[in-house]
Design a protein around this nucleic acid. Structure first.
Lengths: 239, 239
DNA sequence: CGGGTCGTTGACCGTGATCAAGTAACGTGG
DNA sequence: CCACGTTACTTGATCACGGTCAACGACCCG
């Protein structure tokens, strides 16, 4: 809810809707599966804390990580259209989630046009983020893909943590990073070394420090999608 | 509208909303740009006829095609969150589009919770389709990526054209196909040859015939996303 | 101390990119 | 009707990026 009111002034009705959705909560230890692909999906989840990711499996055992989830994210929009989940959800770090039933959204659409529009907009932005990933994986060399991923994470973390400078903890193994950007763990290691050697980043103890953000933005032609969203067309909060 | 009522019985209010959106129309010849990335985006478009695609440019001149658009598709959801377009839109074939202003959606959200939910669901499905592309580009070898693309197109065309068997016209150059699945035109040519040699497809005069769909589905672990969508949680059409 | 996971590094290999040449189809204008 | 230019597709030769396999060290935890 904090995260949502960041974008637009919510009406009281909208706020009541949201509070109803966040009442429950559940904890998951590090390295546990929240759900598997193909399960009936009745819930969406709001991330209260922790890092998680959604992934799919490939026939030969390889994985593709599709989305990283951080505090404030809503997980499960993309599976709304289906009765079964299409991806696996994994807690990369100890996490706390607020599950709420899919038909809780029914109440949102019926009572708050404003909130509906906002959720729709966030789903739209998710699409753009996925498109950015496609661009990175489809047309960038290894080092630039890694630069892209690091910038994306940094910018995303800055939404909720405005005090964050350019250093952040990265609780993912290099295998996981590779699964996110279509590389092997070995080449992730080499790409890290490349970025470090060039003076773009520094690593120490599970933390990454982005030293030359401007140069890295050039490498991968990065655009920040996490800033303001266009709310000009939204219905009036009156209703 | 035809396409939408395919999924759920629309209320009269919903239908009136839709008709208002489709009143205008505009034609584009083959190989023309509808809009460029970075333009102010005021409109969404419904495709009445033709093939189009959205793409992004990369620094070194390479392109990444991100979505193919066919009759019945709504173009522009993904850019709702932004005041400027994030991709280019190109008519790969003579096309006819119905533009409608972004704030036309405001009316939808205010008057029809049902229609809002449906549009939301379709946007959600689009996300899953993008995830499928990420999986293909990130973790499949060339031949399987092409198999994936062909299957995706075939299944999509079958939504609106139920009589379609397994043969369809493919009005894209091999360079464009490569831009869609992260390959060069040369390797697209070779991958086509592979699929043909293996007896999976046959080509003639701009048409593709899928001979062994089951085998191709195995190659790329394909799932059809275009069938039914889950409408069970939708608000009642009463309002 | 032993076992496990994770990251790093080296050697080698293969997929797909790159470069280039050749062919076919098509539209244009003389 | 042919000459011409353009675009698309194919095919061959070569190359390089990143995959694969393997070994080793660091670290953590029991």
């Amino acid at each position: 809810m904090q995260r949502l009111s960041h974008y637009v002034a919510l009406s009281d009705a909208s706020k009541r809707c949201l509070i109803a959705l966040e009442k429950d909560e559940r904890s998951y230890p590090r390295n546990t599966e929240v759900y598997a692909a193909g399960e009936p999906n009745k819930n969406l989840f709001v991330v209260k804390s922790g890092w998680l990711y959604s992934y799919t499996n490939h026939i030969d055992g390889r994985r593709q990580i599709v989305k990283l989830h951080h505090p404030g994210d809503v997980i499960g929009f993309s599976d709304l259209a289906f009765t079964e989940t299409t991806t696996f959800l994994w807690a990369a770090d100890a996490a706390c989630l607020c599950p709420f039933p899919k038909d809780g959204l029914e109440a949102v659409f019926s009572t708050s046009a404003q909130l509906s529009a906002l959720l729709f907009t966030l789903a739209a932005r998710d699409q753009v983020l996925l498109i950015d990933v496609i661009r990175a994986i489809g047309r960038m060399q290894a080092r630039d893909r890694l630069a892209y991923l690091l910038l994306d994470i940094a910018h995303k973390l800055r939404i909720t943590n405005t005090s964050m400078t350019s250093t952040f903890r990265l609780p993912l193994t290099q295998t996981e990073i590779g699964d996110a950007i279509g590389l092997t763990n070995v080449y992730v290691s080499r790409s890290f070394f490349n970025l470090e050697k060039a003076g773009y980043i520094r690593r120490s103890g599970g933390e990454v420090n982005i030293l030359d953000e401007a140069a890295m933005i050039d490498l991968c032609d990065f655009s920040d999608r996490y800033g303001a969203v266009d709310t000009s067309w939204f219905p009036l909060p009156a209703n």
